Amino acid sequence: MSDRLFVNTDALCELLRWMRLKAEVYIHADFQGCWAVDTSGDRHVPFHLVHSGKSWLHLPGEEPRLLSAGDLVVFPHDAQHYLSSEDESPEQYLVDQPTGSDKSQGQITGLTCGHFEFGNKAHWPLLDSLPPAIVLELSDTSRLANTRSLIQLLVSELELAAPGSKVAVEHLAHVLFIHILRSQLDKGLPSGLLKALFDPKIGNALSLIHTRMEHNWTLETLALEVGMSRAVFATEFKRLTGQTAMAYLTEWRMMHATELLQTTELAIVDISEHCGYQSDVAFRKSFKKITGFTPAEVRRNK
């Protein structure tokens, strides 16, 4: 394994741990006749897998798209959508009928539906650079072989329904989320946090920030650690992430401070030190500037 892959994946893993990625599969069924499914609107990241048959994907303002067995569709921003049996926009009464309104005719389509969500509700722009809908054509045997194997294992666990299957499916769905992110990098994202996480040097800097936020980082020391000049590092970091390295570091520290205030009884002075502040006064001032609240207010309202 290359150093580049190891370092950058570390940065992504730490970010996903902090965001407390969760995954749930709540539909695994066959549909026949006239049917339609819409799982948008819950402020999650819905996904659908067509594991047999065919389905039509409907998005507002776009032509319907035919999905075949093995296709996976994901909605990073919870875009409104329908999956249905017909290429015409479905009638509302058909939406979310468990297995179709008429099971006496038509082909059978097997669907697996679920969503990803983040336990930590603070905004983080990991998905900002992604399109409204991502379709992975896993039926294409020349690409995404590992993702296809992962999907097959996930479906197998769902159908087996053996002891431990629910936890196994959740963990497999976590891995699937990472595969989805990687697939978008292969398409050449121009910028964004996801792109930055996999950049050889900026990803290294993000890993240092994520895992050693208590260190007294400066623009110069971060640039030195990743082997870049101060000016080039500053420019590249902002181009990829949309903010300065020091602003990113401060936000990362404040998000961790917020979590500690809400989930522990640590003294505020200890939290400030844990987050890299030598001065309790400086920490309180920075916290109020970033969050709009004092540490005491956050703790009282946890």
Rank of each mutant, 00 (worst) to 15 (best):
R284G: 12
L158Q: 12
S191E: 07
Q107I: 05
G53F: 09
E91C: 02
L261S: 03
L126M: 06
G292K: 07
L59H: 04
N301W: 01
L208H: 12
T147M: 06
L16G: 04
E117L: 11
G70A: 07
G242S: 02
A223W: 04
M254P: 02
T99V: 09
I202N: 02
E137R: 15
D38A: 14
A133W: 11
L126R: 10
D102L: 13
P190E: 13
R148S: 09
W217A: 04
V135A: 13
T218H: 03
T235S: 13
A196S: 01
L16P: 02
K187F: 06
K195F: 00
A231T: 14
G61L: 05
L94R: 13
A196F: 05
L49W: 14
G242Q: 03
K195Q: 14
I180L: 13
G106Q: 09
E220N: 07
T264S: 14
L222D: 05
R65I: 13
A168H: 10
H179E: 15
T258S: 13
K195Y: 00
R65E: 14
G106E: 12
S149T: 10
T9M: 11
L189Y: 02
R17K: 13
D3F: 11
S101T: 04
G100M: 09
Y82Q: 11
L21F: 01
R253P: 04
S101A: 15
G70N: 10
L222S: 06
A145G: 01
P190R: 05
T218N: 07
E62V: 00
A196Q: 03
L12C: 04
